[in-house]
Design a protein around this nucleic acid. Sequence first.
RNA 1: GGAGGCAUAGCUCAGCUGGUUAGAGUGCCUGCUUCACACGCAGGAGGUCACUGGUUCGAUUCCAGUUGUCUCCACCA
Length: 886
Amino acid sequence: MPSLLDKAYDPNRVEDRIYDFWLKGNYFSARPNPDKKPYTIVMPPPNITGQLHMGHALDITQQDALIRYRRMQGYEALYLPGTDHASIATEAKIVEAMREEGLTKEDIGREAFLERAWAWRDTYGTRIVEQQYKMGASADWSRARFTLDEGCSRAVVRFFVDLYEKGLIYRGERLVNWCPHCNTSISDIEVEFEEHAGHFYKVRYPLKDEEGYLEIATTRPETMLGDSGIAVHPEDKRYAHLVGKTAILPLVGRELPIVADNYVDKDFGTGAVKMTPAHDPGDYEVGLRHNLEQINILNPDGTINEAGGKYAGLDRYEARKQIVADLEAEGYLIKIEPHTHNVGGCQRCGTVIEPMLSTQWFVRMEPLAAPAIKAVREGDIKFVPERFDAIYFHWMENIRDWCISRQLWWGHRIPAYYCDHCGETVVSAEAPVRCPKCGHDHLTQDPDTLDTWFSSGLWPFSTLGWPDETPEMDYFYPTNTLCTGSDIIFFWVARMIVSGYACTDKAPFDTVFVHGMLRDALGRKMSKSLGNGIDPLEVIDKYGADALRFSLATGNAPGNDMRFYWDKVEAGRNFANKVWNASRFIMMNLGKAEIPETIDVSELTGADKWILSRSNDLVKEVTDNLESFELGIALQKVYDFIWEEFCDWYIEMVKPRLYSDEDETKSAALWTLKHVLLVSLKLLHPFMPFISDEIYMTLKEMSGDEGASSIMISEWPKFRTEWVFAKDAESIGLIKDAVSKIRNIRSEMNVPPSKKVNVYVVSESEKIRRIFTDSSIFFAVLGHANQVIVQTDKSGIADDAVSAIIPGALLFIPFAELVDIDKEIERLTREKERLEGELKRVNGMLSNPNFISKAPQAKLDEERKKQEKYNDMMKQVLERLEQLIQ
RNA sequence: GGAGGCAUAGCUCAGCUGGUUAGAGUGCCUGCUUCACACGCAGGAGGUCACUGGUUCGAUUCCAGUUGUCUCCACCA
């Protein structure tokens, strides 16, 4: 129980207890419920490689805000959590850990290795969940899944077998990206290119049967061991006479046919290209067209194999040195030039990858991509912000087959079996007992595992029970919003859409809500190597999860990158404290007072109606913003409302009524305070769930509502047409304006707050006089006035009283001391100049016939009203100036 | 080479379908132990909304180009 005596809010004393309360209340659980509409977000499963980072914190902040919003709106809101086995990433970590013990995978064998991996999963998987608790994630933990658990594995096998049977998965020898460090193939998108300062080696390739040589340029001289041809452009006059002839590979002596192919760029390098079909994607294609020999020269670990002759056994870079030295010694090397070019590295370990000929499993993507492209094209799936669909289309429309087999142990084993006797391939969910072709009963399962994204691509439905027809699939699928970073649109989002249509014939979700990258305060990517990552737990420890969530939810437009700032977290912490203290103030005043549930509008004062009206507007605005995924704007509005309008204005206005014993509107004030606070807390809850519930529950208990349920499942406020009080809003606007003017004058004249003065309000308008008379109680307090005297003319007001102009009225503050007339004239002159500027603009607009004839009526009315207002104020300024100058 | 984002106050950023006195947080200056909050209150300074054109009655907002910057895709040896 919080103490009203705590002046500062301490999240550490609240958050864990509140989370526990939620867990005990079973508030996160969602189940098929025919009386409600479902709303589902599947959590992007964090890798079990380590712990949560800021990117995850951002994910959770957004997803949890959306889920909490929908839950309060009455949806059966399912936030489905889980973790990803992250095949290659985790395996790399484990291998690394083992190396410190002096062990390799091969030393301990597959089974023991997998045992270690599962132990790893238990350790890190648990830690991640604890971190998600800390963030306040309202996920249904009873449904937590793991990509390698039994159900997900069944889905993976089913998907694989289905695709195979449809002819969309095939096995074959192709050129793939090979990581010599991870010792596995990887897919095209797992290769990251980086600019390297390398060299261009120019080498002479002698011609057979005639004098002379061809000049060949290469960045990877060692690959010449696998050369099996030379290509030139068919229209290149320099080489036309050589097409069909033969060159000799230096050092090796192999005969190389010279072929003509459009692939070659005449203007790059020397225009003659050595062809290494087994180690270069472009050469591979040319090789197929011209029937060039494919000579694999590499071992899986990146050393030269026996095809490399005397270089066999050397590491690829060692071989490069040797070959260059030998070329030079034998007079083949023409020169070495510096050359920067892009080199592909392994996404996980950074090792330079080698294109290598290898037998692997592939998914034929083109037919699968078709419905996925159509879905986005036709709006069945929407990207927010929209611009990301262009990236999606570009990739999907140029999609290439996906290499899915990995020479790793930690992952889903490929459900393919090879007959030991006849070599027949059997793809099947169950291990076959005998070969369907020859009947032999010894079959060996493919040792490889699947790309980790093959299983995460099924996440939206494998987690709901697919391939079984479960009630969850029926009710929660298709899911609604998929929130993720822009960096994994290809890896994950595209694959989920593809497999969603392939498996369920439906879109896996209707909206993809994309956020940018989270960077450090200097705008750099947060990364381990830079050591600039910030641990969300550290932030939570210092400032609380609400403050962290605040900092991640606000001040950022959807899809844009954002920087992490401690200052911003501090702002969130300060806001939490503000909310805490405002609530504390309200609760202290509520005390044991009996506040009715509802109140008749006639009992409310203008100020009450104003704040009620404003909170009502806020409900609409925040709801609209959330509907369009403008989370940052939504939270900003709640922040501004609570801090400025509610605390700085309304609470201050209401104080005199609360402190008075005989004020008849006191209970109306208390009712309004309580009501507006409740609405504010509800609107705040999706973003700052802990503090909002802590206060909500305390309020409930104070009201004698023992055993009340969490704000989490309270009803999201609705806009109420009967709470639109335009007139009161206008009146309070005028009062606020007047108060600001008075404060400004006092400040400029260095009048200490302790010094009270009288304020005269002079207006010919009865309406305005009434507004000030009605509000004189709080007007006096906010303006530090002794007395507020409202009258129709200036009679009785000292000539040297300081004045301020507001629309429709003049304010006078007579000071006992002599007023500096010059300073007063200066002040009024500034006001005059400001009004002149405004009038110039308005008059210009309204005297423009084009504006009059073309602008919409509403705009015309608006500007005319302004013109009237400014004219009125200008008249008063001039009068007053004239009076002073005399 | 192709595509896209960003460029607004000292700093970090909002500003939705064109019309606002261009905002917030933080920082800065001045006052304030005002009985919820100094993690606070009040007042204030600070912006030719990158540049050049175009569309429009009207452009920070839409379009084109330029410059700077970041990202993604491709990866020509």
